[in-house]
Nucleic acid binder design. Sequence first.
DNA 1: CAACTAGGTAGTGATTCGCAACTTAAAAGC
DNA 2: GCTTTTAAGTTGCGAATCACTACCTAGTTG
Lengths: 159, 159
Amino acid sequence: MGKLTEPLGDIGDDECGLPRALEAMGERWSFMILRAAFNGLKHFEEMQSNLGIARNILANRLGRLVESEILERQPCPDDRRKIEYKLTEKGESLLPTMIALRQWGEKWGTGVPSNPVLCDERDRQPVQTIRVHAHDGRPLDWHDLLWVDQSDVVAEAAE
Amino acid sequence: MGKLTEPLGDIGDDECGLPRALEAMGERWSFMILRAAFNGLKHFEEMQSNLGIARNILANRLGRLVESEILERQPCPDDRRKIEYKLTEKGESLLPTMIALRQWGEKWGTGVPSNPVLCDERDRQPVQTIRVHAHDGRPLDWHDLLWVDQSDVVAEAAE
DNA sequence: CAACTAGGTAGTGATTCGCAACTTAAAAGC
DNA sequence: GCTTTTAAGTTGCGAATCACTACCTAGTTG
């Protein structure tokens, strides 16, 4: 007797992944550090000078990102002073979120076209703007969306 | 004589839209308030009781989101005590970012399948997982990406 | 073995957060 | 029309977080 759909009204908060995501990524600097990691920065000093973040904050955030299994912390074998922070699979899977946020900031910032463009390395064409897509690939907007109870989805998928 | 590509190394920080996006959305609660707005909550008290956020913080965040033109603040004509906060176009265009973050939180949270599923209202099938797509639609991962100078992109697009 | 480097930690003041109480203006109840 | 209730804030204050600087320690270089 599950309610079939809800009118995008209030959803069970704890069913939503957003709070959990924000627990890991919601603090100041977290996204900037993630960007640095995606940009190939691996070491503490590298990130510190690149981001201009305070050292204790950086240490705290790196620790937290490692705890959340977004980054992996491994001592370098060749120079045992150095520590390499690298993205885990979980961390890499934040790429779409980060690109979407970046694209939004570009689109709605000052009209500057934002010069180095993110491209597919295969054909060097810019990547698509990130959108929500339906099962069959149609791009969707907010008003095309609906919350459906899991059981009802499965039933319909069997059709 | 622009450098053709960079190996995803350091990018001009100010060319990146991420800091600008975080200026508007990087504070605690901003994303949760945005989610509330997407879920149809329009009024102060509604959001306050739904999110459990402190009133002063909510007032501050709403003010900031309005300032950033993510929300629009309009007094209700029928009840002049009430104020309606509604998403602007700029605010609505944060939908992909929010869904991407939510999906990430669901995928990597406790193995709970997260029950009400976000679906296309047309066929009631779940929406796709948000990804980065190439110009031609191929899904791309981190290692498929490259920064290309704008002028070089245009040149290639003309081909 | 002296100097330097990588990755932190510790101390301190400035911000911000979060809770509760208060305010103001507009409805509703009677 | 007078009291009560509701909506949307604002204010004060203690607790937590941020950011800046200085310091520390292990490992590496000259």
